[in-house]
Amino acid sequence: MAPPRVSPAGPPMLEVKALVAGYGAVRILRGVDLTVGAGEIVALLGSNGAGKSTLNNNICGLFRPFGGTISFEGEPIAGAASTRIVDRGLIQVPEGRRVFPNLSVRENLELGSYRRGRAARPRNLERVTTIFPRLRERWTQLAGTLSGGEQQMLAIGRSLMGEPRLLILDEPSLGLSPLLVEEMFALIQRINADGLAILLVEQNVVQSLAIAHRAYVLENGRVALEGPAATLAEDPALRRSYLGH
């Protein structure tokens, strides 16, 4: 599949400006600027400890930033409760999936529409199981008994149940077999093709750049590189540090 090279130039949905954040007294992000436009896939790349998850968790309201601003569709959301942020349709699929292991596949999906999209629950259940037929086969099974790949499908399916306007995917390819990783990236592209904006947080540089419109590279809590994905894929510095050639 030919990667989309032109960004669908929508207005910015998510705008992060001069974000400073961390845990306790430790600063991890030292002034990060980032935007995600409507309909875009934006890749956020960086090695372990670069601050990717910190950025995520601050956007989603799990932590309160030390400084800077975050706005979603024009509204400031920095430090807002995670419930309010989900209400607005900014939904994260967390690293490590975080499915509810003691609940069935069906119940996991139902809780995806705990706050948003409750009225359209039956229709969205139908839609998610069309995207992931495997989940239908596991319908009454407890999520804790699913394989890693199935849990990842469930986590993404659960987030789609909330009718997200922007989806943050944190390391969706982590722990999956190479074949499943391929499938996962194809799937992300497919969800995006329906118009959903995606912030893709990944260590898997090659495949992320292949499907993203734009990308940011985070190093030591700062944006070290940014630009169209196609340009970054050719960047000598990036190739040296992440691809080894």
Binding site: G61, S82, T83, I85, V93, F100, L111, Y114, G162
Partner: peptide, 8 residues
């Protein structure tokens, strides 16, 4: 954490 992220 999963609960927080679905807006519970």
């Amino acid at each position: 954490q999963g609960a927080r992220l679905v807006g519970i």
